[in-house]
């Protein structure tokens, strides 16, 4: 049994259930939400109405929201028990990404602060 004769419209990786998790509507909802998040990001980065130091934080939050929208509506990652393997792999990936990026920024900014002033060549 290698699943060669199975046909079920299920787009989630590593899930055995046979109920379809995707349809035209879910993709359209995802597209709409992603467009809204994108437009919000561009507006936030350009507007004068917001407190400037808060803008990067807002952009990061919007980016996370959009990644979540992509994961749920395009990659169909759910919270059901069948999705445990996918979610665990994703959680591990997110952990590594977080460590690499924040660790690099933290360490290098610390080094920059502690560096003696050098003459510009």
């Amino acid at each position: 049994m290698d699943g060669d004769n199975q046909a079920f419209p299920d787009r989630t990786p590593g899930v055995e259930e046979r109920e379809p998790t995707a349809n035209y509507l879910s993709y359209t909802v995802g597209l709409t939400l992603a467009i809204l998040a994108t437009i919000a990001s561009f507006i936030v980065s350009q507007t004068d109405l917001l407190w400037p130091p808060g803008i990067p934080v807002g952009l990061v939050v919007l980016a996370f929201a959009q990644v979540g929208i992509h994961l749920v509506f395009f990659l169909h990652l759910g919270s059901g028990s069948d999705h445990t393997n996918n979610i665990l792999a994703l959680a591990f990936g997110v952990l590594i990404v977080f460590l690499v990026i924040t660790g690099s920024i933290w360490i290098i900014s610390n080094l920059n602060e502690n560096m003696l002033p050098m003459p510009m060549e």
């Binding site: 049994m1 290698d2 199975q6 990786p13 590593g14 792999a89 591990f92 990936g93």
Partner: peptide
């Protein structure tokens, strides 16, 4: 598990890497 499940999960791991 069906081959489809195994293949998709393996590819998901590749994407994460």
């Amino acid at each position: 598990a069906p081959k489809r499940t195994v293949v998709a999960y393996g590819f998901w791991i590749f994407i994460l890497s």
